[in-house]
Design a protein around this nucleic acid. Sequence first.
DNA 1: CTGTTTACCTGGGGGC
DNA 2: TGCCCCCAGGTAAACA
Length: 269
Amino acid sequence: MPELPEVETIVRGLRQAVLKKKIKKTDVYFPGIVVARGRSLPALLRNDSFCSIGRHGKYLMFTTNKGTRLVVHLRMTGQLFLTDKVYRPDKHVHLLLTFGNGQRLIYRDIRKFGRWTVVPPEKEFRHYINAGTDALTININELKTLIKEHPARKLKAFLLDQLLLAGIGNIYADEICFALELDPETPVGKVNGGKLLDTIRAILKLAIKHKGTSVSDYLTSRGAKGNFQNLLKVYKQKFCPECGAKIVRKKVAGRSSHVCPKCQKGYKK
DNA sequence: CTGTTTACCTGGGGGC
DNA sequence: TGCCCCCAGGTAAACA
């Protein structure tokens, strides 16, 4: 499940490899993932090149030299990786860009939830992205304001709400709650804002350093697995690495959540 | 405001 | 081997 650290890892890899490279061909195998308001994505990209690749929350943002702009979201099972070898697309490959240097960018998505959306040039990217402030760039005043506006929200629901704070998904929400030593159902109004910000930053940065978490489908832009799954403390873990207690699974904010009943204050079934 | 449910999809795993 | 059912969890929309 690509969350902020996974998308950031992909963006960094793609920037190095495909910026300024001529796009020779775009093959769309499953048109359902492309939203282009009647325009043809292959025609828009043909002989153009990307001049910038960015990220906001879990969204990728591509801009070409001629001004075409794309917002890409990988949702649950989207993979975005490069290859310069002969590549035989399987049934889950929905889009393939071929660059002038022979490199290919492959979009593969088992569940077809992801989207490539062509957005108009009039407004800033943010206008077309349904998300609040990026979790890596939010400052303490902004975070404290959000907490003040939603004090009754459960900590985990707060972290997962993309309209408040963009980029955190189920894996990192559980890891952040564990690092804070708080049950995910703790009202966020009772959480220290400074501590919360430090913890969010520390976990996301550490995960980026380890190129993200591969628990199911996520791959880096080079098609490799990330490494942060080896450093997870509660998500899909059996025993607490701090105290050895059995990790409990419960539903919070509609998601399966992993909690150490001993280390996380306020734990309730 | 808060919360829950459903839909979108496919594959993997458990039970039998 | 195979069938049925549930589960995985990002987002939008419908609803209480």
